[in-house]
Structures are given as structure tokens and as C-alpha cells.
Design a protein around this nucleic acid. Sequence first.
DNA 1: CTCAGGTAAGTTGTGCACAATTGAATTGTC
DNA 2: GACAATTCAATTGTGCACAACTTACCTGAG
Lengths: 144, 144
Amino acid sequence: MPDAPRLDRQVCFALYSASRAATAVYRPLLDELGLTYPQYLVMLVLWENEPRGVRELGEELGLDSGTLSPLLKRLEALALVERRRSAEDERRVAVHLTDAGKALSSKASGVPQHLAAAAGLSPGELDQLRETLGKLTAALHNSL
Amino acid sequence: MPDAPRLDRQVCFALYSASRAATAVYRPLLDELGLTYPQYLVMLVLWENEPRGVRELGEELGLDSGTLSPLLKRLEALALVERRRSAEDERRVAVHLTDAGKALSSKASGVPQHLAAAAGLSPGELDQLRETLGKLTAALHNSL
DNA sequence: CTCAGGTAAGTTGTGCACAATTGAATTGTC
DNA sequence: GACAATTCAATTGTGCACAACTTACCTGAG
């Protein structure tokens, strides 16, 4: 197998592994909030600014309605979120936080620090990593 | 929402986005091989050294039998792989490459270069990124 | 006004991830 | 040699990702 690329040389595999390891670290914390990682991301966006349309959420997170529609339905079942059909444009659905959804924000505020502590990298290294990953993601999207 | 963490500050989200963007770049290439990204990873491991046990594959990739068993069944349906129950230890299943599976290696050899080209990062930056991600993944696993 | 084209959200189907469980085979201890 | 504990692979069930399609609604050219 002379020309087979080596697994441990692949940036792609390093990303895949690191991403899964990071969500694994978050999992027990998010379990206490009753959220999965993608649900947590949606809540983060809404905590920043709400209400938001499904399409808007999708643009922030890079997810489509095929992922978001059932996810939002589950958040609604948890009573963290409400979906309301827009009156002006009935194609649109606005996602609002409930009081419980707003209240969850303070319980979630400690989550990112936990990752930083577990990462074994300095704040400077983390900053640089985030910046490199941002450049990489943008370049990869441009190449599509 | 005063203490809500910002989405764009999260290393975790940067990893999640970059990882999905990278597999999105690979997708059209892997489509030509008839493989998904996780299936490609399994083939990479086998191209390096085969046969391998299911457990061994799982250790290399950080995946469990719940993920690998159905994935390997699909690779077997594609006639790229054969699973053989070990004679010495009948709990074990050895995963062998078929001739077609071996032959696919040369068609796959150009895939990683494509990512490097799309990444918009210098080879040095890619090396450093891979190294940082490796350190991060190891530290995160240790913290569990 | 009409209707072709486009847009928004939802649905369906496939394939991971991962927890929890099952069942068969092996190992260690007595 | 029996048998409790362990190991290995597979299965079940939930929840993403993402492609392809559907349905409802809006908009703009004619």
C-alpha cells in the first residue's frame, strides 16, 4: 500500500478527533442542563439576541432546516423555546426564548471555562488556535 | 443575558465548524470513491496495516462497536472488506481488505492534498495546527 | 392580475456518534 | 473443573448532519 495517506498525518482527522473530544468534555456539563451540544449552540445564539428566525440560526451555525427543525421541536418540548409563525411573512418562524430558556443562561455561564481548563493550552495558544480555525473554516467554505 | 458566553469566542464551536467544513470539502472526492468520511478513515487504517480487529480499529479512531459494526457491514456490502471470525478467539472479528479494497488505495491517494490546497494555510501552519490539535485532543481525553 | 420563480420551514431517508444492553467466548480464582 | 468477572462484537434507541424533496408563501416581470 505504497501511496496510502497516513492517518496520523491528516489535519482532517486531527480536527475530527479534537472536535469529538471537546464535545465529550462538554457532555457531562450539558447533561446537567438537559441539553445536547448542538442544542447548547442554538441556545447560545438565542441568549445573544432573540428572537431569531430558523434561517438566521442556520446561518450562524452552518446548519440547515433538516437539522434545525427537529432540534427546535425538542427544545420546544423542553419548554426552553417557543416557535411562532410570523404574521407579516407566514413562511417564517420566529424562535423565542421562554422564561425557563432565559433562566438557563446563568446555569450555562461556567461551561466554556471548563473546556479551557481541560484543554492543557495557555489562553494565548487557545486564542491562536481559534483564530487559525476561523481562517481555515472560511477558506474551506470559499473553496466549495 | 449578561453572563451568556459568546458563540464566536468558543474554541469548541471553532472546532465543530472547522471539522464539518473539512469533511464537506472531502465529500465530493469521497463520493467518487463511494465512501463516507468515517468509512474513508477506516480504510486508511486498513491500508496502513491489515487485517485489524474491530476493537483495534476502534482504538485508532476513537470509535466504539456501536459505530463500527454497522459501518463495517456497509463496507462489506461494498465488497471492500471481509469480516472473519477468529478461530483462536471466537469473540474476535478480523477485518480484511478485499482486492477491491486494496485497489481503492491508489484512487484515494490524492485526497489529502486537496484539503491542503483548499485550506488557505501554509504547510508550516498546517503542521502547527495538527500538532496543537493533537496536544488538545490528548489533554481533553486525559481530563475525562 | 397572473403565474413563474424563488424562498422558508418542514419531512424523509441514510449514515454516523454514543449510551446502554445483550450474548457469546475467554480468563482468572478457587 | 466450576464459575464469577471480564472481554469482544453486535444490537437498540436517541439525536445530530445532510441530501433530496415537499408544501406553503411571497415577489416581480409581463
